[in-house]
Computed example of a mutant assay.
Amino acid sequence: MQLSIVIPLLNEEKSLPELYNWIVEVMLSNSFSYEIIFINDGSTDHSWQIIEDLATTSQNVKAIHFKKNYGKSQALHAGFLMAKGEVVITMDADLQDNPEEIPELYHLVHNENYDIVSGWKKKRYDNVVTKNLPSKLFNLAARKVSGLALHDFNCGLKAYKLEVVKNIDVYGEMHRYIPLLAKNAGYTNIREKEVKHQARKYGETKFGSERFLHGLLDLITIWFLSKFGKNPMHLFGGLGILMFFIGFLSALYIGISKLYHLYNHVPDILVTQNPWFFIALTVMVIGTLLFLSGFIAELILRTQRKHERYKVSKTLNH
């Protein structure tokens, strides 16, 4: 099979029939063998009923139904597990991603051997204040921290080798950083392609402005995990030893100073009346706690077990 098209969705009943017909038209005109995988992320409208109807008319339609809304990352994770095509395309269900971009994305991955091709919505039809400007600032921060020269980390339209999606773990809200997760896993042949962006035709966006704050926090998490995820003691233990050493030297200096004053019969305040004594003691305690945190993190890392992150209620044609 050449293509797996993975589409996470939440309450997109109006756009689904039009999106499906559009994709099928592109697939047939290019003679692709394909599967369309819809992941219904807890929709409360008639999205699942529409997907069931589509699945009865075509064996190319496969679907996963979540018992509740778990988020886009979990939906993509489930879709990637089901995908079987040589090239995996992800796109949103709101008709803002253009299916006519799929042949070129497939060509870049399959024929030019890119691991990932990430879409770049250079010209956007979103609100400038609430989406465009925050998105530009977010992408700037993401480029600086990740080292990936991508203009649009948030673009849902991406193409992957099947091998890539089978070897990365998309969790939490990390769907924005799949290229970075892939890079950390050793898939470094990544490029960007400018894609068409459509104005939203039905409904409203499911993402609020808080997604940018969450995105920045997730970016810090990925940076930390890529640097210290395998050896957290290197960070916490190193900082702990440094702070304990600084506190110990400070306390030692205070003690020597006190002995000097006593030996020379120079009046001096009690050690417990010296605020620097308590500062030194606090620094030593913090250093000890940091060291213990690193030790505990190492233990957790070595004893962790995989656990179920979402509940699948139904699947179709799988």
Rank of each mutant, 00 (worst) to 15 (best):
K67Q: 13
V271G: 13
K84E: 12
G255T: 15
T57F: 13
A199M: 14
I286F: 13
A251T: 06
V170M: 05
L299K: 05
F153A: 14
I279K: 08
Q96E: 11
L95K: 04
M82A: 01
T288R: 05
S73K: 06
K136R: 09
E210V: 14
Y260W: 07
I7C: 03
H234P: 00
A199I: 15
A142G: 00
I168Q: 01
K144Q: 10
W276H: 08
F32S: 08
H197I: 12
L235C: 09
A182S: 04
T44L: 11
N113S: 09
G203Q: 01
M243G: 00
D53I: 13
V283W: 02
K158V: 10
A185T: 02
H261T: 15
S209C: 06
Y70W: 00
T221D: 12
Y20F: 11
S146Y: 00
F32K: 09
S118D: 02
F80C: 00
N274T: 13
N127P: 04
V129I: 14
I222Y: 05
N139V: 09
M284Q: 02
S4H: 08
S15N: 10
L28E: 15
Y310H: 08
W22S: 15
R124H: 08
H110F: 15
I279V: 14
T272W: 09
A185Y: 06
E52M: 03
I36W: 07
G294S: 06
A83H: 03
Q74W: 02
P267L: 11
G255M: 15
I241P: 11
N184Q: 11
D115Y: 08
